[in-house]
């Protein structure tokens, strides 16, 4: 959402904690459990990559250019005869790393801005929120592209770029939380006994406001994995020969007609992984917000423009 709308603010302040109904918890936890299990398998496989397949992901094999999936190469080989399955596992490491790094940067920066903004209010709040408005008004994909051209293409650069286009949502969530908590009794109490403001902020307010941020973080990891693939697609991804799901998928475009499996596997991995994050996020949100009034979807509306 662009400039602070009453709608958005009304929603942000509604994260009240109430006990969820039994059925809802059960159903949603089922999904979350499936999501968590899938994620666990993916992460373990990726970490164990070399042990699982026993091949080097970058080993070029002139005799096996573009072979379709077989018993020897479960997911076939790519245009340089490299084992696709091995590259999927190594690529997963990179994609997940980017996902988590970008989330940490985005949520960290956003959380900080939101906390300061909400806590100090006044001019600080006004300026910070206008900056958020500005950043939200520029279509995310435009921002992503502009920053990609300017910043660079290392794993950290890419995470930074994604984080810089995603901090606005956590900032708003955090601000709303802090605004709500600031007036609560124990904060007032801490203030009245003369605690310094930063101490009040980080000791008393932030820890209590962090729950909704965790929900957002989960969603953001998934979004970042998708964003990485989009950046690759547009030519600003991880450098070869290091595989990532994004750059594998992008490379595969050229061979859609001759080697379709190259396009299918990395895409399936992205969908499975991101879906798992989304389901976990949904369940977490529900546990915190049993009224079920707004999905992660309601919050992350602008994220859509990043990938369309």
């Amino acid at each position: 959402m662009g400039a602070a709308s009453p709608l958005a603010e009304a929603q942000e302040s509604q994260l009240l904690i109430r006990p969820p109904s039994f059925w809802r918890r059960l159903l949603l936890h089922k999904l979350a459990i499936v999501g968590a299990a899938v994620l666990l398998v993916v992460i373990v496989l990726c970490l164990l990559g070399p042990v699982v397949t026993g091949t080097n992901p970058n080993a070029i094999d002139f005799t096996a250019f573009g072979s379709p999936p077989s018993l020897h190469h479960l997911m076939g080989t790519d245009d340089l005869g490299r084992d696709e399955f091995t590259r999927i596992l190594f690529g997963g490491r990179i994609s997940l790393l980017v996902g988590f790094l970008a989330m940490l940067i985005g949520v960290g920066l956003g959380g900080l801005v939101g906390a300061i903004s909400g806590f100090f209010g006044g001019t600080v709040d006004f300026i910070a929120m206008r900056v958020v408005d500005i950043a939200l008004s520029i279509p995310r994909l435009f921002l992503l592209l502009l920053l990609s051209v300017t910043i660079g293409q290392s794993i950290f650069d890419i995470s930074l770029i994604i984080g810089l286009t995603a901090w606005m949502y956590p900032a708003r969530i955090m601000r709303a939380q802090v605004l709500g908590l600031r007036s609560l009794n124990y904060v007032e109490a801490a203030r009245s006994i003369g605690s310094r403001s930063t101490r009040v902020l980080f000791r008393h307010i932030v820890p209590n406001a962090i729950a909704p941020l965790i929900v957002n973080s989960t969603i953001q990891v998934g979004q970042a994995i998708v964003s990485e693939s989009v950046m690759s697609f547009l030519g600003y991804g991880i450098q070869p020969p290091t595989p990532s799901w994004g750059n594998m998928l992008t490379n595969a475009q050229t061979f859609v007609q001759t080697a379709p499996w190259l396009a299918i596997f990395p895409g399936v991995m992205i969908v499975i992984t991101v879906l798992a994050f989304n389901l976990i996020g949904d369940a977490l949100r529900d546990a915190l917000d049993p009224t079920g009034q707004k999905g992660a979807l309601g919050r992350g509306r602008n994220a859509k423009q990043a990938t369309a």
């Binding site: 970058n58 070029i60 245009d79 340089l80 030519g235 070869p240 020969p241 490379n251 050229t254």
Partner: peptide, 14 residues
């Protein structure tokens, strides 16, 4: 974003 060049440089790297 140029597939033949990406292939070439990876062979050279090896």
């Amino acid at each position: 974003g140029n597939v033949p060049r990406a292939e070439t440089e990876q062979i050279i790297q090896q």
